[in-house]
């Protein structure tokens, strides 16, 4: 009997679930529950919408995963998105789409690098450093939006509105946000797995002193992680702008908190040193699927907030218990 059980335990599928975070079980369960709960959920149009949201918000979460990996936190992401988006639209209307795109991405990197510099050169803990940046960016965003609540993109791309390109479909289902998110996932996943800098990032977050002794430049990698975070934020803001064809002063609100919750639900450790792209996107998918099905069921936002909170806390508890069991077994 015990031998049988051991054999069962060592089958690849079971091993996969045992070794990885419980998130995979959770997400399967949730999807099953969603399909049984609402027939509207499985409509192709909804699946595309849902995966588009996962792609758009996923990019922000990818950036955040890097920041978490090196043991940092970025509170300013929400207002980074708002600032990047606002400036992108302003520039789009004056100098055209492609230059605006380029400048926005550079700007995103700059803000990210600035955050990294504050953390590494000024030695300010990232929580406080990015809180300060957040407050300042909030003021800037409000100044830029002083005369309007939202600013429409008047510029067109090849004679079409920007929102047209957000919904353009390759093979009937692949939209730009899917493609960009997949590119990010694959490229940055490879970076984390095969490049020296990527591998070293785990050391920076997990055990900075060991990194220091083995000759890793912790500060450089931290700055790099924050820069990737800023870059991802600017990409996310461009996708959000493309979807709405406008930028608004509050377009980043909640995005950062959702990203943090998603990444944590996926199993990335905030203390650093643990996480990968698969965890990140699975976490985003979980949160977005739950939100989507709650909207489909006609739940009010208050109820949705309550359930999201409970899910986050439950996942944390589950994670704690499983890691305790793992520790006991080892």
């Amino acid at each position: 009997m015990i031998a049988k059980l051991d054999k069962f335990k060592s089958t690849p599928v079971v091993r996969f679930f045992r070794e990885n975070n419980s998130i995979y079980i959770l997400i399967l369960v949730i999807i099953a529950a969603c399909i049984s709960a609402s027939p509207k959920f499985t409509r192709p149009a909804n699946i595309i919408n849902l995966t588009q949201s996962i792609g758009t918000y996923g990019i922000l979460a990818i950036g955040l995963t890097f920041i978490f990996l090196v043991g940092g936190i970025d509170l300013s992401l929400a207002y980074q998105v708002a600032l990047d988006g606002t400036l992108f639209v302003l520039m789009c209307n004056s100098i055209g789409f492609f230059p605006a795109l380029l400048i926005t991405l550079v700007l995103g990197c700059c803000i990210g690098y600035m955050n990294g510099t504050i953390v590494t050169r000024l030695k300010i803990p990232s929580l406080i450093g990015t809180l300060a940046v957040m407050t300042s960016l909030k003021g800037l965003v409000l100044i830029l939006n002083n005369d309007s609540s939202g600013r429409a993109v008047e510029a067109t791309l090849f004679g079409e509105r920007l929102s047209h390109f957000y919904n353009i479909k390759l093979f009937g289902f692949l939209t730009p946000s899917h493609i960009i998110c997949i590119i990010f996932l694959v490229a940055l996943g490879m970076f984390l797995k095969y490049k020296r800098d990527g591998i070293n990032m785990y050391v920076v977050g997990g055990n900075p002193e060991a990194g220091l002794f083995s000759g890793i430049n912790n500060d450089r990698l931290t700055r790099m992680a924050f820069t990737i975070g800023g870059f991802c934020a600017s990409f996310c803001s461009i996708l959000v702008v493309m979807r709405m064809n406008t930028s608004t002063y509050n377009m980043g609100d909640n995005l950062d908190i959702i990203a943090i919750c998603s990444v944590v639900v996926g199993g990335v450790k905030m203390q650093g040193g643990k996480g990968n792209m698969a965890m990140c996107i699975m976490g985003v998918a979980t949160i977005q699927i739950i939100n989507n099905v709650m909207t489909k069921l006609g739940m009010r936002t208050a109820m949705q907030a309550l359930i999201t909170g409970i899910v986050v806390i439950l996942v944390l508890i589950l994670d704690k218990i499983t890691s305790n069991i793992k520790a006991n077994n080892a």
């Binding site: 919750c261 208050a302 309550l306 409970i310 986050v312």
Partner: peptide, 10 residues
């Protein structure tokens, strides 16, 4: 952060 969401709902 989780309880923030929960308290918001409540």
């Amino acid at each position: 952060l989780g309880t923030m969401y929960a308290f918001k709902g409540i």
